[in-house]
Write a protein that binds this DNA or RNA. Structure first.
Lengths: 113, 113
DNA sequence: GCCATACTGAAGTCTTCACTTGACTATTTC
DNA sequence: GAAATAGTCAAGTGAAGACTTCAGTATGGC
């Protein structure tokens, strides 16, 4: 990222930055089948537990994931909070210009490439 | 990205990769107020038109954006298709383990960090 | 207590990808 | 037709960040 970024990024930006990585998406897919520990995640992903921890921190910081440590084992599960935030954004994003289309649809016509 | 990636990525993966960039999100926010040309986008973003074109290609390849060239001017607008795909994914993702929580909620209890 | 297990932290490497520049191809206007 | 405008293409640069390794800190079992 050559752009400034990180300077006052909102919730949604942090969520989309987090989801913009293959490994983190794979973590989410794994967890959608049920809670898993750090090393249980590392195995199928075929990366070190350190790498997993780093991803967990990011996913947790934008409320896509929660974890609680039980003894020496950290158990991870998905967090609805972040997904709800994202869902609202996507819907807003879609409807905002669908409304515009409705308004204009009857008035204008399009030309194609 | 040090991971292999790009080897058989699905629609949603492409969408989330696209949205995982600040500039592309800013393009989407600009377009949510109405269609704009390439150079109209470049101005507020404060990057070259070349850079904008590159982002447009990516956004278009995952159906977040459509454009039609009218003379020498390319007009860009958002495309509902990609956003719908994403909305479904987010919802699925959320509900999949909310159902699990419902099933387990009455049976087990949690312990905290 | 001692060894194994489960994870965390700091520091370094290496790849990807966002952006630029410079040259080129339409279109529009005069 | 020349000049200006709008955009595209190819190639190169720089930085962000996804990994790794190695060392360190709990916790659990013997």
């Amino acid at each position: 990222m050559a752009t400034s970024m990180a300077l006052r990024v909102g919730k949604v930006d942090r969520i989309l930055d987090a989801l913009g990585d293959t490994t983190r998406r794979r973590i989410i897919r794994l967890l959608s089948t049920g809670p898993m520990s750090v090393s249980e995640l590392a195995k199928p992903l075929d990366i070190t537990v350190t790498a997993v921890t780093q991803h967990l921190r990011i996913l947790q910081s934008c409320a896509l994931l929660t974890s609680h440590k039980n003894g020496r084992v950290r158990m991870c599960s998905l967090d609805a909070t972040g997904f709800e935030t994202l869902e609202y954004w996507v819907r807003d994003c879609r409807t905002s210009w669908e409304r515009r289309l409705d308004r204009l649809g009857t008035i204008l016509e399009e030309d194609d490439t």
